[in-house]
Write a protein that binds this DNA or RNA. Structure first.
Lengths: 95, 95
DNA sequence: CCCTATTTGTTCGTATGTATT
DNA sequence: AAATACATACGAACAAATAGG
């Protein structure tokens, strides 16, 4: 069994973002949720702003769409994000 | 149990919940396959009806998704169920 | 009104890694 | 060692809602 792609994410583009560790103990969807949660907390993703789409997250972080959806779903459960059907995911405006 | 013909509401599930024994000798996926097979045979799951999704089976019987998939795959092999990709698993219409 | 594109949600299939028996 | 079971992850396909042309 091939020891899974061990390549260190070649597209390590301008680290405007944190990379995902596909080999560590922390699940990918939890890592991605943590990244987005941090961007919300820091104001990089302010209230009312749309989150990157699933497809964008897939391209930007190298994860599967289902994994991206799972990460966003976590933020929805936490009340940080609101889904608008057919539109996208938006950062909740805090009162 | 499960008196046929007294169904007031279409979606009202008779909670005749058969439990899975995770400690016995019979593999979980075989137990689950037997449960579904019985529901098909009894008409509780008639021809054309969609089987519960993997996720539903996970929540309802407390098994892993892979185990639920394995159980459904058995019914497919037996010709009792037909898979429609992206849709779900449907009970075969018997002639 | 119809068509297309975008986005989210959900489905099944499959593979991997780990733990247990 | 082998079978079983679970969690995670990726891929592909279908559906519904929305928006714009």
């Amino acid at each position: 069994m091939a020891p899974l792609g061990h390549r260190a994410l070649p597209g390590a583009s301008t680290v405007d973002h944190v990379s995902i560790d596909h080999l560590g103990d922390v699940p990918v969807y939890q890592q991605l949720a943590a990244i987005l949660r941090e961007q919300i907390a820091s104001g990089e993703l302010p209230g009312g702003r749309a989150l990157p789409s699933h497809i964008t997250l897939v391209q930007r972080y190298g994860v599967a769409r289902g994994t991206a959806a799972k990460a966003v779903a976590m933020l929805v459960d936490e009340g940080l994000v609101r889904i608008v059907p057919g539109r996208g995911a938006y950062v909740q405006r805090r009162s």
